[in-house]
Design a protein around this nucleic acid. Structure first.
Length: 762
RNA sequence: GCCGGGUUGGCGGAACGGUAUACGCGGUGGUCUCAAACACCACUGUCCGAAAGGGCGUGUGGGUUCGAAUCCCACACCCGGCACCA
């Protein structure tokens, strides 16, 4: 509303991200189609939004579950597939046993399903992925550009999630595996400088690598251990405080720097899908390796100078490196006493020289697993043909519309419900015309929401996903408002889509959301409102009791928008009283519409213009609660002017009341409109231009100067705003209160900041 | 453990390095009223004091500065992210 008044073209759209599990689960329960539930709820929400008086552009409304929309979601999938950014692979995946579907890494929170809380297990499945890791570095780098306009919380969360680390790949030659060919295992380490302390190697027990390396003699022990590990849930595996376990693979590896022979073990504390799935064990430099070495009776070599309080037993990290070679070994690399960064780069240089390793970067971010074994989502537009393999559905055959399933047909059974719709699944191959099968998985609903902001520029265009020219003209989104539960989900996926679409030439910008306003939640009595807690507040009741404007005002005034609000702490009654006060001002004005404000009371005019001026700064900074506070001050000043000042006929009073109406139109549009009409204007305050500020009125007539002695306020003086430093100093020293206090003292220094302050140092 | 953010009256919260606690809620007293509601007015950080006035005060302890809620260093606590990621 503010930007509109400032004369900008503003696109403030609203729509529904309406695929997903809740509708599907309700459909199963009620034996109906998910669309029934979905569109009924959308209608209810739409009515609510209308009632709240939100200024959305409803002409651009759409729903991601409409075929007219998901047709383009599917089209974008095909584009990503063409570019090699969508691919299938077999791999252990997160499985929610309750929702009976796979989940992306981002949807697993502390080992549990983000949606239903069930403990997530692992399954070996062939699934679709988007290659988000291809953009890992750029996704990280452009966070620097977003940092000034995004909440640090979200930027920080994404940095942690992407999790870049720098280190080295180091090659160890394996022996004792009975083969004649030389085999090399590469490990990833962030601390190549600790290589002198390597006393063993550990390989992820569930990696193919471990299976390949294990000797016949160790195989039965290894398999027993591997099977035991497989039975454990992720939650158990994630616990960092449990004892280290492992099994020897029977082979040895050669340390490429020292030539030392070290044993190779398999363990579950090394992750198969991070780095190379193998780690050099440095118990003198790494807590986990120290625990493992201690548990297995492996030797420990210090890699750092121990701290003074080192007790000789517990793990000791930190200190300077003492990575000189072991006794009696010649020194191919001497990094003794160097600081860590220098030691790392020297070690990497040495490894590269020897052909035994390279500098390397790793990311924690994994590719985005997007297939779901559920019904209520966009079907993946791929046909599997025994002859031609994965075939993209031709664009002119989009959308691939969901088959009509309902109720019990949707019950989760571990494979996609779409697979059971035989008429739908069995198709002819678009390439060879032979019999083929549709891909029966649907896309993660986060795919739908990763590009919807683009659809808003041309929501009804049935010839393309979005109009590139319009997207480039409008985009990127200047201000994105949302909750920070999407910090590493929606906000990361959308960034990935934007970069991928840019590289396809479909848009020119790099980031979807230039600024991000993270909005808080409304709590009650310190907790999230919920039925089980019985602390819900019925918004309908609040609206009925106080009115829409008072409820809106309460939400805005309670705190800065990014903070949570506790409904127990706020006062919708107080808001209503304030609105009534404001409304009464409009009725009290007796001058006619169009009265010349410049002839009005100057003191009140100063207040009015100052408030408008300050409101601009506050609105730009999203400090809406303070805008309301300033508006209240203006109402109080106007009230005073009417009752005991210049009186209701003064044009300055009209100017003030009209300004109040305009400021209020941002937050309390109905009250503002009512005021506007009472002030004798035609309806339509929302379309009024933002009031101009007269700069001359921002200069105060007189200013209160503070006189401090040694930094403590002792007295105040009313002075002219343009008083000189010398005059102000003289006035301060001449003040009787000050004179009495400095009597007999030596004034050592006087700091003058005209016209606001004098500080006298004795 | 690592990384971010925070801590201001009874409460929600204001404060370009320059009057701490704006604005509001709550509270106290008053005006109006037969009475109440509404409205309006005054007071409301804390301690000492009858008052005038003064001392102390923005999580704790230091520092920089004429001057610190604000900048710097440590610490405590709260919230959030990551986490056997080598």
């Amino acid at each position: 509303r503010y930007w509109w008044m400032k004369g900008y073209e503003v696109l403030n759209p609203m729509g529904w991200d309406s695929f997903g599990l809740p509708a599907e689960n309700a459909a199963i329960k009620n034996d109906e189609h998910p669309a029934t539930y979905t569109y009924a709820n959308i209608d209810t929400q739409y009515e609510s939004f209308r009632r709240y008086g939100v200024s959305f552009d409803w002409s651009r409304r759409f729903h991601t579950s409409d075929p007219e929309y998901y047709r383009w979601t599917q089209w974008l999938f095909l584009k990503l597939h063409e570019k090699g950014l969508a691919y299938r692979k077999n791999s252990p995946v997160n499985w929610c046993p309750n929702d009976q579907t796979v989940l992306a890494n981002e949807q697993v929170v502390d080992g549990a399903c983000e949606r239903c809380g069930a403990e997530v297990t692992k399954r070996e499945l062939t699934q679709w992925y988007f290659r988000t890791t291809q953009y890992a570095q750029e996704l990280l780098d452009s966070l620097d550009d977003l940092a000034p306009t995004w909440p640090s919380k979200v930027v920080n969360a994404q940095r942690n999630w992407i999790g870049r680390s720098e280190g080295a790949h180091v090659d160890f030659v394996i022996s004792g595996d009975g083969s004649t060919e030389e085999r090399t295992i590469t490990v990833y380490t962030t601390r190549p400088d600790t290589i002198f302390g390597t006393t063993f190697m550990v390989v992820a027990v569930d990696s193919p690598l471990a299976d390949e390396l294990v000797t016949d003699a160790q195989r039965s022990d290894f398999e027993a251990y591997r099977d035991a590990v497989k039975k454990e849930s992720d939650i158990d595996r994630l616990a960092t405080d449990r004892p280290k376990t492992g099994v020897s693979l029977g082979v040895t590896a050669t340390n490429p720097v020292t030539g030392a022979q070290i044993p190779v073990w398999a363990t579950d504390y090394v992750l198969a899908d991070y780095g190379t799935g193998a780690v050099m064990g440095v118990p003198g430099g790494d807590q986990r390796d120290w625990e493992f070495a201690t548990a297995m009776g492996l030797p420990i070599v210090r890699t750092t100078e121990p701290p003074a309080d080192f007790d000789g037993e517990a793990y000791a990290g930190g200190g300077r490196t003492i990575n000189s070679p072991a006794d009696g070994v010649a020194a191919p690399l001497d990094i003794n006493g160097l600081d860590v960064d220098e030691a790392k780069s020297r070690t990497i240089a040495f490894l590269e020289e020897q052909g035994a390793g390279t500098g390397a970067v790793n990311f924690r971010l994994r590719d985005w697993l997007l297939s779901r074994q559920r019904y209520w989502g966009a079907p993946i537009p791929i046909v599997h043909c025994p002859v031609d393999g994965e075939v993209r559905v031709p664009e002119d055959q989009l959308p691939v519309v969901l088959p009509e399933l309902r109720g019990a047909d949707l019950k989760p059974k571990g494979t996609s419900p779409l697979g059971a719709a035989t008429d739908w699944v069995n198709v002819t191959c678009p390439t060879c015309g032979g019999p083929a099968l549709r891909d029966s998985d649907t896309m993660d609903t986060f795919v739908d929401s990763s590009w919807y902001f683009l659809r808003y520029v041309s929501p009804h265009d049935d010839t393309r996903a979005f109009d590139t020219a319009l997207a480039n003209a409008w985009g990127p989104v200047d201000l994105y408002v949302g909750g920070d539960e999407h910090a590493v989900l929606h906000l990361l996926y959308s960034r990935f889509f934007t970069k991928a679409l840019r590289d396809m030439g479909l848009i020119t910008w790099d980031e979807p959301f230039s600024a991000y306003l993270s909005q808080g939640k409304v709590l009650n009595q310190g907790r999230k409102m919920s039925k089980s807690l019985g602390n819900g507040v019925n918004l309908g009741d609040q609206l009925a009791q106080y009115g829409v404007d008072a409820v809106r005002l309460t939400l805005v005034f309670a705190s800065p928008p990014e903070d949570n609000i506790d409904w127990a702490d706020v006062s919708p009654g107080g808001s209503l009283k304030f609105l009534q006060r404001a409304l009464r001002l409009a009725g009290d004005v007796t001058s006619g519409a169009g009265a010349d404000a410049t002839t009005g009371d100057e003191a009140l005019r100063r207040v009015t213009h100052k408030v408008v001026h300050e409101a601009e700064r506050l609105l730009d900074a999203h400090r809406f609660n303070v805008v309301v506070a300033r508006t209240m001050e203006l109402v109080n000043a106007t009230r005073k002017a009417i009752d005991s000042g210049c009186g209701p006929a003064d044009p300055a009073v009209r100017e003030a009341a009209e300004t109040v109406a305009q400021l209020l139109s941002l937050v309390a549009p109905y009250t503002a409109e009512e005021m506007w009409e009472r002030l004798g204007h035609q309806p339509g305050i929302a379309a009024r231009r933002w009031p101009d500020v007269d700069e001359r009125l921002l200069v105060e007539e007189s200013v209160t100067a503070v006189v401090q002695i040694k930094g403590k306020v002792k007295t105040r003086l009313e002075v002219a705003p343009d008083i000189s430093e010398a005059d102000l100093e003289a006035a301060a020293l001449a003040d009787p209160t000050v004179a009495a206090l400095i009597e007999g003292e030596t004034v050592r220094k006087v700091i003058v900041r005209a016209p606001k302050l004098v500080n006298i140092v004795l």
